[in-house]
């Protein structure tokens, strides 16, 4: 007989996680689908649940001089309504699911679920966000691109929980999110892309791209991004095919029920081109 828990404080939650192997449940919008069973039966769960969406200590949005910090159980809808959240993250969230899911789905859940197609993760990786992770006796931080290590895999240990996500307070001249899905709402991405770019005197000073749904985790490579830095916009536009192809080896999609690898590869490169043309 599994015993689920609904702790009322963060402290109680972290103590519980020290005692047994649990599945942490937040908004439920991914887990309830993954553990779905027949109608009117309990979900198929491997481990007992610890519910965390009620923890007020993890529900916040704060601004510090260096970061916007978002508590892991803060809902997408709350983020959409906050003036502190960067516009590119809001542009991403509005592409996630639909209001019924955004009212309960969370940033912490999207990260912990570690889907290669996670839209918010794509943008958070481009933004160089940092994940703060807590256990009953420790607190650590990790870059989100290192925290997620593969399909549905993170470095989170069984006694740990994601406390918050810290987004560096950096301005961008261009910050765009593109998503291709089978439907305008409630679609899991076939391909997604977040691109951030700064330009000074016609010269690129920052270039950062992250791709969703093109590999085992959201893909990005700072070394490839840096090939754009120091170049003039004209240089890049005049050699647009060459510059776009620099990302080709990073894009290693698969065939699945949503799309094919050929389509994903082509569209991902086309989205970079479409962005370059807006410069």
């Amino acid at each position: 007989m599994v015993t689920h828990h609904i702790p009322s404080t963060l402290e109680e939650t972290l103590k519980l996680l020290e005692t047994n192997l649990y599945q942490v449940m937040c908004g439920g919008t991914d887990l309830m689908v993954q553990s779905r069973s027949w109608a009117n039966t309990v979900p198929k769960l491997v481990k007992p649940l610890v519910f965390i969406s009620q923890l007020s200590e993890l529900n916040f949005i704060e601004e510090t001089p260096d970061y916007i910090e978002i508590g892991s159980v803060t809902s997408y809808e709350t983020l959409l309504n906050s003036s502190l959240v960067p516009k590119v993250l809001k542009d991403t969230i509005i592409e996630i699911a639909a209001p019924g899911i955004r009212h309960v789905g969370t940033l912490g859940g999207n990260i912990a679920n570690a889907s290669p197609a996670a839209d918010a993760v794509c943008t958070l990786i481009a933004l160089d966000a940092i994940v703060e992770i807590m256990s009953s006796n420790s607190i650590r931080t990790e870059k989100i691109c290192d925290f997620i290590i593969g399909v549905k895999k993170t470095t989170l240990k069984p006694n740990e929980i994601i406390r918050s996500i810290k987004i560096p307070n950096v301005e961008h001249d261009y910050a765009n999110f593109y998503k291709v899905g089978g439907r305008k709402a409630d679609a899991i991405s076939k391909v997604s892309l977040c691109v951030l770019c700064n330009v000074k005197d016609n010269i690129i000073t920052k270039f950062r791209i992250a791709f969703g749904a093109v590999g085992p985790k959201v893909a990005s490579n700072i070394k490839t991004d840096e090939l754009f830095v120091g170049k003039t916009i004209d240089e890049i536009k005049n050699n647009i095919d060459d510059y776009t192809k620099k990302y080709a080896s990073l894009i290693t999609p698969i065939d699945d029920q949503r799309s094919t690898k050929e389509y994903r590869h082509k569209v991902a490169l086309n989205m970079i081109k479409a962005f370059i043309e807006t410069l």
Partner: peptide, 20 residues
């Protein structure tokens, strides 16, 4: 769809433990 604190939510994705 039902309303959770006046906001629309899919009740097929909402575990009972989240509505205390």
């Amino acid at each position: 769809s039902i309303l959770l604190n006046h906001h629309v939510v899919n009740s097929c994705l909402l575990p009972l433990g989240n509505i205390i």
